Amino acid sequence: MRKDSRLSRALHVLIHLSVADKPVTSDKMAAMLLTNPVVARRTMALLRDQGYVRSIKGHNGGWSLIKPLNEITLLDIHKALGESSVFTIGLTDEHDDCIIEHSVNTALKDAMNEAESILLARFGEVTLSSLMDIYR
Results as ranks from 00 to 15, higher is better:
49 D>I: 09
86 V>T: 15
126 V>L: 04
98 C>P: 01
133 D>A: 09
24 V>Y: 01
25 T>E: 12
114 E>G: 04
100 I>W: 10
10 A>Q: 10
135 Y>L: 15
118 I>L: 13
46 L>D: 15
100 I>Q: 09
108 L>N: 03
1 M>D: 14
78 H>F: 13
117 S>F: 08
41 R>Y: 11
96 D>W: 01
128 L>Q: 07
37 P>R: 09
61 G>F: 00
9 R>Y: 11
119 L>Q: 10
130 S>F: 01
106 T>Y: 06
132 M>R: 13
85 S>Q: 08
97 D>N: 07
64 S>G: 00
74 L>P: 00
92 T>L: 10
40 A>E: 01
105 N>C: 01
18 S>E: 08
28 K>R: 15
41 R>N: 14
110 D>F: 05
95 H>M: 05
128 L>I: 03
58 G>T: 05
75 L>A: 14
96 D>E: 14
119 L>Y: 07
28 K>N: 11
56 I>N: 06
52 Y>D: 09
22 K>Y: 09
52 Y>L: 14
2 R>I: 12
131 L>C: 09
100 I>T: 13
64 S>F: 12
15 I>F: 00
72 I>S: 02
111 A>M: 08
136 R>F: 09
107 A>Y: 09
129 S>K: 09
80 A>M: 03
90 G>K: 07
33 L>V: 02
39 V>R: 05
63 W>T: 00
125 E>P: 00
70 N>Q: 07
70 N>K: 04
66 I>E: 05
28 K>T: 13
82 G>K: 04
101 E>D: 14
135 Y>D: 11
117 S>A: 13
114 E>Q: 13
114 E>A: 13
32 M>G: 00
24 V>T: 12
42 R>H: 05
37 P>G: 03
41 R>P: 01
79 K>D: 06
120 L>D: 05
80 A>F: 02
128 L>W: 02
65 L>M: 01
93 D>C: 04
128 L>F: 04
84 S>P: 03
26 S>W: 05
90 G>H: 02
87 F>A: 11
93 D>K: 07
1 M>C: 07
29 M>C: 09
134 I>G: 00
70 N>H: 11
36 N>F: 10
95 H>V: 05
60 N>F: 08
52 Y>K: 02
8 S>Y: 08
104 V>R: 02
14 L>M: 14
42 R>K: 13
82 G>H: 03
54 R>G: 05
129 S>G: 00
6 R>V: 12
8 S>K: 02
65 L>D: 03
41 R>A: 15
45 A>F: 08
93 D>Y: 06
38 V>E: 15
9 R>E: 15
9 R>S: 15
87 F>D: 13
37 P>C: 01
77 I>H: 06
27 D>N: 07
134 I>R: 02
88 T>D: 15
109 K>W: 04
105 N>D: 11
34 L>A: 12
4 D>M: 03
77 I>E: 06
48 R>P: 00
53 V>Y: 01
121 A>R: 12
115 A>I: 01
104 V>P: 01
13 V>S: 03
91 L>Q: 04
64 S>M: 13
130 S>N: 03
3 K>W: 11
